[in-house]
Design a protein around this nucleic acid. Structure first.
Lengths: 140, 140
DNA sequence: ATTGTATAGTTACCTAGGTAACTACTTTGC
DNA sequence: GCAAAGTAGTTACCTAGGTAACTATACAAT
């Protein structure tokens, strides 16, 4: 199997298309998908450091720094003083929680619509395959 | 099913990880993966316009313009005069064909290594699922 | 033939990912 | 207790995707 008109090519196209459409939807609540990922994480896990976010999302630290700065400028997150002076511990503000709740509805509806018509079994196989490939990439 | 610890999140992580590793491999022949996509296309379909490339790769025109400019600066492609003065018809140079051949080996080895251990059937289901989702995104 | 519309490509500017190199702080080892 | 190593985060700069608005050319309709 060749790269083109093949598996990986389509997967990349799907990913691009997906984030594009998700950004369109999230524009309703004035968020970008990268911001949504961090807002979601903070809502679920509470107060965190940038490294924790970086590890969870599997995104490099400079990228996290930039997105977190944007969220802070918009007062969706706030800093918490901590013991370790190197760390930047952040959490959602009240406004951030509110935005999360609005965004959650938008994302869930978007996902639900996209998923409808897909067999549960096919989804499982796909997820297992992608995880297999992801793990294999980590090793190499 | 929720977005996080869910299907789409993992798919995006996989895509990022994949392009990252592919770029590492393609560095051997001094190419980036976006350049490789265009070089591959030109080798397969011959002399083309930027719009044709844009449609095939499902990437917006400005992005294609930029990547093509890089390829031209490196003398991997050359312009061909045509009837329609709006068009920019390009093809691989001799050096471009040579680079394609070298890159092809690198990419094929990378893909083959990644694919090994995956059942043919699982791969088919995965590809079908991704295509289904991709088509659904186009409609929405 | 002229006028309006469609198309090819570019420019400017935005988000989003990456690496390399750096600062500031913490921890560890002797 | 001090020097070395490790860690958190930032800065600068690169590729790579996107949109909006623009120019220049081609085509179509009246």
């Amino acid at each position: 199997m060749s790269f083109h008109n093949g598996f990986f090519h389509h997967n990349l196209q799907f990913s691009r298309s997906f984030t594009k459409k998700l950004n369109e939807q999230l524009a309703k609540v004035d968020l970008f998908h990268s911001q949504w990922l961090i807002v979601y994480y903070l809502n679920q896990f509470g107060c965190s450091t940038l490294v924790e976010i970086s590890n969870y999302l599997d995104v490099e630290k400079p990228t996290v720094t930039r997105t977190v700065n944007r969220l802070e400028e918009r007062d969706l997150i706030e800093q918490i003083p901590g013991k370790d002076k190197r760390e930047r511990r952040i959490q959602l503000t009240e406004s951030g929680v509110k935005t999360f709740q609005e965004a959650k509805k938008v994302v869930e509806e978007f996902e639900h619509q996209l998923m409808s018509g897909l067999a549960e079994e096919e989804l499982e196989v796909t997820q297992r395959t992608l995880n297999f490939l992801k793990e294999k990439l980590k090793q190499s």
